[in-house]
Write a protein that binds this DNA or RNA. Structure first.
Lengths: 228, 228
DNA sequence: ATATAATATGACCAGTCGGTCATAAAGAGG
DNA sequence: CCTCTTTATGACCGACTGGTCATATTATAT
């Protein structure tokens, strides 16, 4: 955690340092990021850096926390979904959240991608159930719910599916945004409404169809013929 | 391209340097890889490095070429598929190739992933047709063939699908291998036959089912009801 | 005004970086 | 043996690295 001094800083100065750090971590990993670069780009003295942070890792963890906070803020700012969200509307919402985050904080999203690349987590074991738990758990939760509600076929290997969904959601956003720009011929505005833009909805729906028809039980899916 | 001197080297020495370079590029990008590290780890003098290569980028490109060559070798070494390969067996083969490569050359695969991360290509425009062409073109070819043979639904956005397949194939291999290790409780041997191991086939088939039922026209897929 | 605490600063350190180069060693042809 | 070419070497260079620290400045409290 950054030292107290850092949090006593005028907000403007603090935010400047944070912005510069984000930019640095977007282009460099924790181990290759440069203290000197951050110091120079934010106009503070080298000594000040070490008055604010223990070391680079301290600042890095702080940036990761910013990412977490911003994402939570963003989720709560999105229009509240209906109480009984359809299984696949729920998945669509998960993808939309990542998309909105990419749109609003592209550099933070890049830092997150880099972090994920340097610290890959293909899986971890749930200490309670002993089951595999790939990724951040969002998609495991989605799949469990889906299977429970008979919306997802029972033959689906949920850990494999959760991993695949995680990978797709992580890399989908930059593709969709670049695609939007190329298709429309103009830059995408940062305040684009991800849940209403028609072209974006088309693309997202196309992906949803692709995923759904594979996992949805209705209409007939081959494997379910045998398993039930 | 490396200088002549490099190719005059005894094979053993040349391969040692290449191995050390691969290891360096597996852990560092082109811009953060260290000449000194490579020199020390391979036991050659600093000056020799610059007798063999123009600079680090020269060596980097050479390693990329090794990756390309090894992959081609591996493809031609795999049992030849039947002439008229079923559309989805063809996709399965594409995934198996990536898997075999990860299994046989895990460090080369890591270098490739890092390269792809540092030089992301979400899409490029085909100069001939003017169409979008995401990824390396393998999956575009697959999808075009599939649509042509009526095996893939016409409503599928092929560029989006090709991108998703590319992302999945790139990140699937390390997951599957780790999964195999955890499920079986023992390390996976490097000479595992990716096209015959039963557990591996189960997992791959599960993913194929997931993808197929979404893209295969048979049995009924919703969107095709309307489009045809 | 004075004393004390909090903050800011950049010269400085030892270590590493990519890259060069004069020199030495080794090979090849006669 | 001598000659000429190719290859090997590591000391050396200037630039940059993360980190320290004595000193200076500012804010706070009395």
């Amino acid at each position: 955690m950054p030292k107290d001094t850092f949090f006593h800083l005028p907000l403007e100065k603090r935010h400047l340092i944070e912005e510069v750090a984000v930019e640095e971590f977007a282009e460099n990993s924790l181990h290759t990021a440069s203290v000197n670069a951050i110091v120079n780009n934010s106009g503070i003295a080298k000594g000040s850096f070490y008055q604010y942070f223990e070391n680079m890792e301290d600042l890095y963890k702080h940036v990761l926390k910013i990412i977490k906070d911003r994402k939570l803020d963003l989720i709560s700012s999105l229009p509240l979904p209906a109480n009984n969200l359809d299984t696949f509307r729920y998945l669509q919402r998960l993808l939309q959240i990542d998309l909105a985050f990419e749109l609003k904080y592209p550099r933070l999203a890049q830092v997150e991608r880099r972090h994920n690349f340097e610290n890959p987590v293909t899986s971890s074991i749930d200490p309670e159930t002993g089951q595999r738990l790939s990724g951040d758990g969002r998609f495991h939760a989605f799949l469990s719910q889906g299977v429970f509600h008979d919306d997802i076929a029972t033959w689906v290997d949920t850990d494999l599916a959760a991993y695949v969904l995680g990978v797709v959601s992580r890399w989908l956003s930059p593709y969709l945004l670049e695609r939007l720009e190329q298709d429309s011929g103009k830059a995408v505005e940062a305040d684009l409404d991800v849940s209403s833009d028609p072209h974006l909805q088309d693309l997202l729906q196309n992906l949803m169809d692709l995923l759904m028809a594979g996992m949805a039980r209705e209409p007939q899916i081959r494997k379910d013929f045998y398993s039930k």
